[in-house]
């Protein structure tokens, strides 16, 4: 056995030990997360909705666009558990498919504004000369009321699912960018960052490997809440007629359709309303749980209770 081989083995066992430690930390984190009651409740709620949305083709009892002019605005019955809407379409099937659209838009917004916001926030926080220009642009966007800006953009782009995603991404990106920038500014002054730079690491490596990795926790929490807000905002856009075009169901346009008959056929608005409430509540509870579990300071505060 040569010295080199021994060193390699010793390096290998060190790496394996680190991987084991990481797995242990990960398992402990997941354990703590699921021990958190809010997170668990949120997970169950959202999980149920995701399963419904993902399996809509199998679970929905009817084609959501199938009109039936013999039974429009029919109350809930054995044939239609949530009744029918003004076109005689099955409300339950439309809510299930509508949830899929809402989740897809919410996820699209979270991914797009997460990536854009992270890039802009990281550049603004790390590259000093870019900070002023980038953040003033973000401030400019934030000066408009969020939903109003989204409505204007969606109206300009025309009603479609993609327009809704673009409009909400533009609206929510500045919020993500602010959070990432704040974290980057704090993190880049840390000793380990200086050490990495002193050891000759390049700026890109430092930014992505050491700084951004440490901004992920607040970002994930923020994105969870943003997911919930996106679902609500999508419902608002669809309610106002600038979301996905008819007959494509979305939770907002189902409610908008039933609004005129709220006294005669309340089921058309109640069930999609409940679906929105469950999705948003689920995401908010999960966000609370994540924040409590990720942020040790909050955990310490909560423990004595």
């Amino acid at each position: 056995m040569t010295a080199d081989t021994a060193t390699a083995r010793s390096r290998g066992s060190l790496a394996a030990e680190m991987a084991r430690a990481r797995r242990r930390r990960y398992r402990a984190f997941i354990g703590r997360l699921f021990a958190h009651r809010s997170f668990l409740l949120g997970f169950v709620l959202l999980g149920g909705i995701v399963v419904l949305a993902a399996g809509a083709n199998v679970i929905a009892p009817y084609n959501p666009d199938q009109n039936d002019y013999h039974s429009f605005l029919a109350p809930p019955s054995a044939a239609h558990w949530m009744g029918t809407d003004e076109f005689g379409r099955d409300v339950m099937s439309r809510v299930i498919f509508g949830t899929r659209v809402s989740l897809r838009i919410g996820l699209g917004v979270v991914v797009a504004s997460g990536i854009l916001g992270t890039l802009i926030g990281a550049l603004a926080g790390y590259v000093r000369w870019l900070d002023g220009a980038l953040m003033r642009c973000m401030d400019g966007l934030m000066a408009f009321p969020g939903v109003l800006l989204a409505i204007a953009l969606a109206a300009a782009l025309g009603p479609s699912e993609l327009s809704a995603i673009v409009a909400l991404t533009v609206t929510f990106t500045p919020r993500t960018a602010r959070i990432v920038r704040a974290s980057v500014i704090v993190t880049k002054r840390m000793l380990y960052v200086e050490a990495a730079l002193a050891a000759g690491a390049g700026h890109l490596r430092v930014l992505f490997r050491y700084i951004l990795a440490n901004t992920l926790s607040p970002l994930i929490v923020q994105l969870t809440f943003m997911f919930a807000v996106s679902i609500l905002a999508e419902a608002i856009l669809s309610f106002l007629g600038v979301g996905p075009p008819p007959p494509q169901p979305s939770l907002g346009n189902i409610i908008a359709g039933g609004r005129a008959y709220i006294q005669e056929a309340p089921w058309v608005t109640i069930y999609p309303g409940l679906a929105i409430a469950c999705a948003v509540l689920g995401l908010n509870l999960m966000g609370d749980g994540l924040r409590d579990t990720i942020d040790p300071r909050l955990r310490t505060v909560r423990e004595p209770r």
Binding site: D65, N67, G158, P159, G241, P245, P246, P247
Partner: peptide, 19 residues
């Protein structure tokens, strides 16, 4: 909405532009 449904059934690529 109903017209679009009727037309799709015969193979017309009907889309709705609601403004």
């Amino acid at each position: 909405v109903v017209i679009a449904g009727n037309l799709k059934a015969v193979g017309i690529n009907a889309v709705i532009n609601q403004v």
